[in-house]
Design a protein around this nucleic acid. Structure first.
Lengths: 228, 228
DNA sequence: TAACCATGAATTGTCGACAATCTTAAAGAA
DNA sequence: TTCTTTAAGATTGTCGACAATTCATGGTTA
């Protein structure tokens, strides 16, 4: 079944629940990056059998949060500078594409709704000065809307189920809060304008730059983090 | 474990074997596209338990060859025109990126080796006139080398484990053999030249065009196929 | 007739136990 | 000492059975 990263999807089975729980714990760092995973231990902790746990592990592997080796076991993905660059290169290409498609497809009222969302975020931001949660959530929300507007289901799945948890893991564990708030807002605005004008080429370019800026930001933080 | 789509990776476990076997059968159409999958039936057929089979099913889902619904079951992916377009849009973006990175990274001797491979394919092509297998394999080989030359492991995984089996499925089941042989060869050559000159921008552009041409080709075939 | 509800069959999800493999640590040889 | 070998322990892979859910069939009612 397709587990969406953003909207709350229906959780029907026990392995669904374990998957969602573990995903959160890994992204937030409760389960440490790079650490070995013991199946018997985790199965006991979540109160399920190993079969159920392994089902969840398989899905976590699909979204790149853990790595498996046959007859050896699972390990939580390790956050490295190299991987960060790799992931952002892919993200840039895919979200650039999504943005171009959105510019082609998005109807006028959808654009208006997106603009409204952005203004709303700005207001919330002003009120809750310094509070980082809203920024992160707002940013995610903005990107997710554009991704969905691409109307390309395969692309949507690839980004929201495949890449975004890993990206979030870097951001959360690096404690991304930051001075990029207002700048990011301007960039978002420029992207919306390009989409509104159905200028796919420009929208793609702007999105790629926006993501590059985000990468530079997090990368700097990562290097500072590693030198400690 | 990471199952590579091209190079023959070590098969250690029973579910590995089932995964590889089923993958081939799905891609080649022995297991019909869109058909429902019965776990008990297939488990018996492959001579393994359901647990082992389900492990394989999970991996097949990761490379987009089957789709699961909770408490309902699995279904082989259905080949549709819409999905074909979606997949090729993603492929274009990702392989364009790979090609650009390859142009940045590839050493002179690697480029030479790739050129040699291409010439070799041309010769084989001339000898085995009309035989399509070599063309298909040659094309795959060429693309795979460039993908690997990107040196971006995440991208490599995404393409070779994620997208290529699905693309192959379309190509195989549409019976792609065809008049694009010599044209594709010229396009490949132009791409290599751009890479050799470390002109990443051009290499990316040419690769995207090459893939677009390939898409147009298979799409036409698909529409002809569907109208029958 | 058509729509709706039981009931049973079949399928998927989950469990605990066994087999195969890897890891660790101790014992022995160079 | 250091490297190799071996045996015990622990971990993963696989199996068959049970529980929960869905699907198909037939019967009932409007």
């Amino acid at each position: 079944m397709t587990q969406d990263a953003f909207s709350k999807t229906q959780i029907t089975t026990a392995s669904d629940q374990v998957f969602v729980d573990m995903r959160r714990e890994i992204v937030e760092g409760s389960i440490e990056q790079g650490s070995k995973i013991s199946e018997p231990e985790l199965a006991k902790r979540y109160g399920v059998s190993r079969a159920t746990l392994r089902e969840a592990l398989n899905r976590l592997e699909s979204c790149y949060l853990i790595e498996r080796k046959a007859n050896v076991g699972c390990r939580v993905v390790a956050l490295t500078a190299e991987r960060l660059i790799e992931v952002y290169q892919v993200r840039s290409a895919l979200e650039g594409l999504a943005c171009r498609l959105a510019a082609d497809n998005m109807a006028a009222d959808e654009v208006q709704s997106l603009k409204q969302l952005l203004n709303q975020h700005l207001q919330t931001q002003r009120v809750k000065e310094g509070e980082s949660y809203y920024q992160e959530a707002g940013d995610l929300d903005f990107h997710y809307r554009i991704i969905k507007a691409s109307k390309n289901d395969h692309l949507i799945h690839l980004l929201s189920n495949g890449l975004y948890q890993l990206i979030r893991m870097y951001r959360v564990q690096m404690g991304m809060v930051g001075p990029r708030v207002s700048k990011a807002f301007d960039e978002h605005l420029a992207i919306i304008n390009a989409i509104e004008n159905h200028d796919g080429e420009l929208a793609e370019l702007l999105m790629k730059r926006h993501i590059s800026a985000s990468q530079a930001n997090i990368q700097a933080k990562f290097e500072r983090y590693q030198s400690m």
